[in-house]
């Protein structure tokens, strides 16, 4: 396992109470693969991304990189981790400092590592620009001289230039126009193949996630409610929330009729997470048990599980088990 979260929790103390933004989430990112986190606003997926990037320290639980605990690293060891895990964010305007030239923006991670010569850094900047389809002359310009799509290419170039193993993509295309989105998605796929990168992608667009990822985790109010290979989660969603999300997604197909009865009301607050199953107030299939007892994880398909009382499969083995090992334990 390359990058792993184990029972990760992040609670924020506020004057009104404790916000349980992330409340006991585990998942693992395999080398060369893409893991997607989906969920609605307020489900904790962005906080989880910050935890994985070590921008926030977890309240409890651990973040492991190549099996080693990293969430408490500082100083030199932390900088070493920074070389391996880079990020691309949503807003191509706010993610590039307007006062730096593009060359400096792309060079920044390498400058921070401090182990490359200037000539080597310049060479790597030019290579990175070439990879993302921008001319090397772009290095001398300022961000405001580029369009949104070009800026996002610069952000990708910057993330690639230190040759990381993992890139965390937080809504990398949702601020872009449809025709530009496809350019960036294809670019991300290409560089993944070329450099064997692993992606952790955060997105709310389900079609994009299905298109782009190998494994998917569905989050609701700080909890992971379903997780597994993308084919399984999208092909046969086991959790009523995943089912509702998929059914609600608008499709560019005029014959598709959107159902209106798959979900009730709106997402709750992470400050008052409902008792039992956090989804029960919105679940059309809830029972008395759902209101009081937190459901266990049940295997729903090979390598996939969901937390729901409606399921009766056995508990999945620890997250590090491979799907073929799980197959033997599932019914």
């Amino acid at each position: 396992m390359l990058l792993e979260a184990q029972d990760l929790k992040k609670h924020f103390e506020t004057r009104k109470g404790v916000v349980k933004a992330v409340d006991g989430v585990s998942f693992a990112l395999e080398p060369g693969k893409t893991f997607a986190l989906v969920g609605e606003s307020g489900c904790g997926k962005s906080t989880l991304a910050k935890l994985m990037l070590l921008l926030e320290r977890p309240t409890s639980g651990s973040v492991r990189f190549r099996g080693r605990e990293v969430s408490s690293l500082r100083g030199r060891a932390l900088r070493q981790f920074r070389r391996e895990v880079q990020a691309v964010f949503q807003d191509p305007y706010s993610s590039l400092n307007p006062r730096l030239r593009v060359g400096k923006i792309i060079a920044e991670p390498m400058l921070a590592q401090g182990d490359l010569s200037r000539a080597e850094i310049r060479k790597r900047v030019e290579e990175a620009l070439e990879v993302v389809g921008l001319p090397t002359t772009a290095a001398r310009l300022y961000p405001h001289e580029f369009s949104g799509g070009q800026r996002q290419r610069i952000a990708v170039a910057r993330a690639l230039a230190v040759r990381p193993e993992v890139v965390i993509l937080d809504e990398p295309t949702s601020a872009l126009d449809v025709s530009i989105r496809a350019q960036i998605l294809n670019l991300l796929s290409d560089v993944q193949d070329e450099f064997g990168l692993s992606y952790l992608i955060i997105a709310h667009d389900l079609a994009l996630v299905e298109h782009f990822s190998d494994a998917t985790g569905v989050m609701y109010l700080g909890n992971m409610v379903e997780q597994g290979p993308t084919e399984a989660v999208f092909g046969a969603p086991a959790h009523p929330y995943t089912q509702a999300l998929l059914a609600s997604a608008p499709r560019p197909d005029p014959d598709h009729v959107l159902p209106t009865d798959v979900i009730i009301g709106e997402i709750g607050s992470a400050m008052n997470v409902p008792s039992g199953c956090p989804f029960h107030p919105r679940c059309p299939q809830r029972t008395a048990q759902c209101e009081t007892v937190q459901p266990e994880r049940h295997v729903s398909a090979p390598g996939a599980w969901a937390r729901c009382h409606l399921l009766h499969g056995p508990a999945p083995r620890p997250a590090s088990l491979r799907p073929d090992q799980l197959e033997r334990t599932s019914t």
Partner: peptide
């Protein structure tokens, strides 16, 4: 701003 978070991710002090 996201570029400040990205600078931390880059390893800047």
């Amino acid at each position: 701003r996201e570029y400040v978070a990205l600078a931390r991710i880059a390893g800047c002090g």
